[in-house]
């Protein structure tokens, strides 16, 4: 039995830890409604007159600083982020899901090594390959294109999709596939009607994670693209202007940039928690 004192202490500790980790998020949210003056006040005060100025500036693209009006096309960055992340995930799923199935189902010579090699792309720091990549991206005309960036993003998203969905495919009973084929269905139809639906929670998880990883990527886009294709992570740099750092707008930009991933996470949650086997196979 737990004594009341123990429970009070435990609740207090949990609260403290919660505040410690949640405070930065709350603070950024508050900052996005503050003027730079409020933000830089010392000591900081939670009492201020909230303003939508930062958001308006972001959405309109007109930023007025002490040294004059600056044009920042932040909404274009946001659109870039959406295009880059969505396309990367789609490409990864199209390539990665069938590959993951093959790795899970067929034990072929070198299969394990191949799967591991693909995963090992995640181990190396991106900078290792970035400079040579920059060189030949410029040479073959992929520099500063969506196509080029989406291609490079596969380094991030493909291993994730492969390794996560592979585990889920391994959990789909081979008997189910055999049963479906004996019913008279081709292997292709078995793949689409049995294997894919049963691995759906895994595919959803892999898709969501790769989306987030792609969304948060900074270094690839910084080096391999100009402002025309750069996503929000790079775009936020623009607020560090010659006349000072626009903390309020950076905060608002961050808040805006989190919204799409948040919506996606909520939307896919249903698939993530959906049980895998749904009780068909006696466990």
């Amino acid at each position: 039995m737990q004594s009341p004192a123990f429970r009070v202490v435990r609740a207090l500790l949990l609260l403290l830890i919660g505040i410690f980790f949640l405070f930065p998020i709350v603070w950024v949210l508050l900052m996005s409604f503050m003027t730079n003056v409020d933000i830089l006040r010392s000591p900081p005060s939670p009492f201020f007159v909230p303003t939508l100025r930062n958001y308006v500036a972001l959405i309109s693209g007109h930023l007025s600083t002490s040294s004059g009006e600056v044009q920042i096309d932040y909404m274009h960055n946001l659109l870039n982020s959406v295009i880059l992340s969505t396309c990367s995930v789609i490409v990864s799923l199209i390539l990665g899901v069938p590959a993951a199935y093959a790795f899970a189902r067929f034990k072929f010579r070198g299969g394990e090594d191949m799967a591991f090699t693909l995963l090992s792309f995640r181990f190396a720091p991106p900078l290792l390959v970035l400079l040579p990549l920059l060189g030949y991206f410029q040479a073959i005309g992929l520099y500063d294109t969506y196509f080029g960036l989406i291609w490079v993003y596969q380094l991030i998203t493909l291993p994730l999709v492969l390794w996560i969905t592979r585990g889920y495919f391994e959990d789909v009973s081979e008997d189910l596939e055999l049963a479906y084929r004996l019913d008279g269905h081709s292997w292709l139809s078995t793949f689409f009607r049995i294997s894919i639906p049963l691995a759906r929670p895994g595919i959803a998880a892999a898709g969501l994670l790769s989306f987030i990883f792609a969304w948060n990527n900074f270094i690839f886009a910084l080096i391999l693209g100009s402002s025309s294709v750069q996503p929000v992570t790079v775009g936020a740099l623009a607020f560090i202007t010659a006349s000072g750092i626009e903390y309020g707008q950076i905060a608002a930009a961050l808040v805006l940039s989190v919204i799409p991933t948040l919506i996606l996470a909520i939307f896919t949650q249903r698939y993530l928690v959906e049980g895998l086997s749904l009780g068909a196979i006696k466990g």
């Binding site: 009973s173 008997d175 189910l176 055999l178 049963a179 479906y180 084929r181 004996l182 019913d183 008279g184 269905h185 081709s186 292997w187 049995i194 639906p197 049963l198 086997s277 749904l278 009780g279 068909a280 196979i281 006696k282």
Partner: peptide, 20 residues
Amino acid sequence: DNPEQRDIAMAFQNFALYPH
């Protein structure tokens, strides 16, 4: 022949019902 080409049906110990 592939399984789907054989005129054979099978029932499994673990039932192998399609859960969805």
